[in-house]
């Protein structure tokens, strides 16, 4: 399998990349880790006329804590997150990172590339939903921060405008006791999630839940926030019963398809099981 021909440039500054994207308009596409894009090109499911390779823009490879957030640059690889001490500030981020694809793909693929790809079977956007992340977007005319809910538009569709690119993603690190988890049912290393559930719990001083985040993978046409479940949890004291109710609400927020990886009813059940277990794990790590 061989990709169709394309034009190529690899600027070594962000300005250079933005200028190229501005000039190319709809013809241009960013190449980051390429671990999804290149296989899609081999199958001719993607045929960009012009690739702007950002792999030489070393200023984008950061992972850092700043202003109460964990920020991950557009060139940070999945395995950079696995190895990062700063990333440990977010349980939901650090628990998801080792389960992205396989070790070699993690060496090359990027967090932001996955966020921008908006594959509903991708793990990172569920994590970003649970953590209420902001996507840092830049175009030649300026930069903006887009909440993850607004960034994800649909199946493989984000809200970037022509000429814009993702330069990073920032995960707020709450000041209170916070815990999180990512639970993924995959059949083998390298497989996409059959079902994935990201959870985060921020506790108030009295032990009640200040805010909950729940993101669902591979059970809708896009990564989905389980809003009703989150609302049910906020302000309440955590308990097994409460988590079970939230789990049922999360399952109701899913609309999985029956496919070769499993039956829809079962997937919905797994959403509930993982939400319940994930919340329990988040609570345990918030308390520790």
């Amino acid at each position: 399998m061989y990709p169709p021909a394309f034009e190529y440039q690899a600027p070594d500054t962000l300005e250079g990349a933005l200028a190229a994207l501005a000039e190319l308009g709809d013809e241009g596409r960013v190449l980051a880790g390429g671990q999804s894009l290149i296989p899609m090109m081999k199958f001719h499911l993607a045929a960009p006329a012009h690739l702007v390779d950002i792999n030489r823009i070393s200023e984008l490879s950061y992972i850092r804590r700043s202003n109460g957030s964990l920020c991950i640059g557009a060139l940070a690889r999945h395995n950079d997150v696995v190895r990062s001490d700063d990333a440990k500030a977010s349980d939901v981020v650090s628990s998801a990172a080792p389960w992205i694809s396989d070790p070699l793909v993690r060496n090359r693929g990027t967090v932001c590339g996955s966020v921008a790809h908006c594959d509903p079977e991708g793990d990172w956007n569920s994590v970003m939903l649970a953590a209420r992340a902001e996507v840092m977007v830049q175009g030649s005319s300026g930069s903006r921060r887009v909440g993850i809910d607004d960034f994800i538009v649909s199946y493989f569709t984000n809200s970037l405008e022509t000429g814009e690119m993702v330069t990073g993603v920032c995960v707020p690190i709450p000041s209170g006791a916070t815990g999180g988890s990512y639970m993924k049912l995959e059949r083998k290393i390298g497989d996409y999630a059959t079902v994935g559930v990201a959870t985060q719990l921020e506790l108030a001083d009295d032990g009640s839940i200040a805010q909950a985040g729940i993101g669902l993978t591979a059970v809708n046409y896009q990564n989905t926030r389980a809003s009703a479940a989150e609302d049910m949890l906020a302000g309440e004291m955590p308990s097994d019963e409460l988590f079970a109710e939230a789990a049922a609400a999360a399952a109701s927020a899913s609309d999985p398809q029956t496919d070769v990886r499993g039956d829809a009813d079962w997937k919905r059940n797994v959403v509930a099981v993982f939400t319940r277990r994930g919340l329990a794990q988040a609570l345990a790590s918030a308390g520790s």
């Binding site: 296989p39 396989d102 059949r187 083998k188 390298g190 497989d191 996409y192 070769v260």
Partner: peptide, 15 residues
């Protein structure tokens, strides 16, 4: 269905 190694699953050392 099962026309590539993303859909035709063969086990790795981990499983």
């Amino acid at each position: 269905i099962g026309s590539n190694f993303m859909d035709y699953l063969v086990p790795t050392a981990w499983e």
